[in-house]
Design a protein around this nucleic acid. Structure first.
Lengths: 116, 116
DNA sequence: CCGACATATGAATAAGTGTTCATGTGTAAC
DNA sequence: GTTACACATGAACACTTATTCATATGTCGG
């Protein structure tokens, strides 16, 4: 497990200082959970599709060529993490993006991919 | 599977148009893979720790109170996705962040969490 | 050369996750 | 009421993944 001191030469003496500047464990845990939502191609596709505005479940399924059940399950995850919001209209459920950051994060991810 | 038409009323007639504007499947697949890297608390912690500058493996392990093996495995993933880069100095390996987007994406994730 | 140290890596195990299938809930049309 | 439709949901299964343990590689000091 963690050594008492590494790299000799006091090179990393200030570990405690660094630790103090870091967010607490819970925050980083939730942050990882938040990014995990982006880490699935089906969910990313849904997010991408909703860039054009709200859409109902069936349309998303048709657009992405996936089953309604699969889309519904993933929309649940997206909603739980407040990436999308739902609006009910009769028997339809229209979903749309719920956060500005979502688009920004998405775009930055794409930029990262392009740079190479 | 996907119905021929949903939501009646031509409400989502332009599915093909939406599809044309979306990145191709491969891109979205890689994008999801990229975000998946952020979706682990150990890796997020490593990224967070490296905000203060380069660090060797042992120090990271000590800082995060995790095993050297675990850190090394995750650094491999981070490096493969070009989130960090490595610099060898004798028997030490110093890692540092490799992309500006990484910090931006990280910060936006935190902002999203705060807004609630 | 040899032992101590820093790091990398392969195999194995346990935990987490996405899709499918079947079914439940609720709404609209007849 | 009954049928058809849109969506939600639970269970099961296959698949992925993170950690641990053991070990390999490589460097430095003596």
């Amino acid at each position: 497990m963690a050594d008492e001191r590494c790299c000799g030469l006091d090179k990393h003496e200030g570990l405690d200082d660094i630790k103090k500047e870091m967010p607490d464990d819970d925050t980083l845990f939730y942050l990882a959970d938040f990014f995990k939502v982006f880490g699935d191609s089906t969910r990313i596709k849904i997010v991408c599709a909703l860039f054009n505005g709200e859409m109902c479940v069936g349309s998303i399924a048709e657009l992405l060529n996936l089953t309604q059940s699969s889309i519904s399950h993933q929309l649940r995850v997206l909603k739980a993490n407040r990436l999308v919001k739902a609006r009910k209209e009769g028997k339809y459920a229209f979903y749309s993006l719920d956060d500005i950051h979502v688009m920004e994060i998405y775009k930055m991810g794409l930029e990262h991919l392009k740079e190479k």
